[in-house]
Amino acid sequence: MLKIGPLSFNSRLLLGTGKYPSYEIQKKAVEVSEAEILTFAVRRMNIFEPSQPNFLEQLDTSKYTLLPNTAGAKTAAEAVRIAKLAKASGLCDMIKVEVIGCDKTLLPDPIETLKATEELVKEGFIVLPYTSDDVVLARKLQEAGCHAVMPGASPIGSGQGIINPVNLSFIIEQAVVPVIVDAGVGSPADAALAMELGADGVLLNTAVSAAKDPVKMAKAMSLAIEAGRLGYEAGRIEKKRYATASSPKEGMSIG
């Protein structure tokens, strides 16, 4: 069970809804992923062409928890505004705080992220900030009352996987709220590693939506996250420098 604030989820995969080849493929990918939390962005509507299709309209919103993001915000004030716009839809109380501080790397602005988190917690949101893999910042976000911390594995959409597993494990060790690895996951192995390190969940988008077969990749990610979690709970063996025989040494018929 993944518990975020007052909410509980069976799936530990949080799926983004951007950049799929078609709505049909996206619908299938969402289904097979078994994700219960879907992320969205908030944007100006093209009111002069209202007939344009929208994925949300094709979704049974009673089956999913929507996690809108504040993507596009560069300041805490902008993030708070986007969060309030999202909440006014009446569809969601959760918000992924995403305040980008660098256009090239899309890495978050730590100071504005913390400010936005503080403000949104006060406003009664369920707050999930996307953050860099900085343990001190993660702790400050927790102290601000966030309901999960979401450190990036590597830059958004880069598919580089977990480039600093040590930092990530520091965050996980001191966490008092769920840790959801968000951004940079490229393959099922990356997702499994995040879970084996003790993460509570993984949020990904491009790894599935831009895969050659998004539906198959959605399934692969779902399985990898489950496998990684089971492995973490089972407790892996210590790494040793030399071999240890698996078969008994006694009773050999040779010599």
Partner: peptide, 25 residues
């Protein structure tokens, strides 16, 4: 909030933003 759409009157020079949810990560 949508409950207030009916009661909110518009005036000349109002700044109006209409937003919706789109795909995103």
């Amino acid at each position: 909030i949508s409950e207030n759409h009916q009661s909110t009157r518009l005036s000349d020079k109002d700044r109006i933003e209409i937003v919706h949810f789109v795909g995103g990560g």
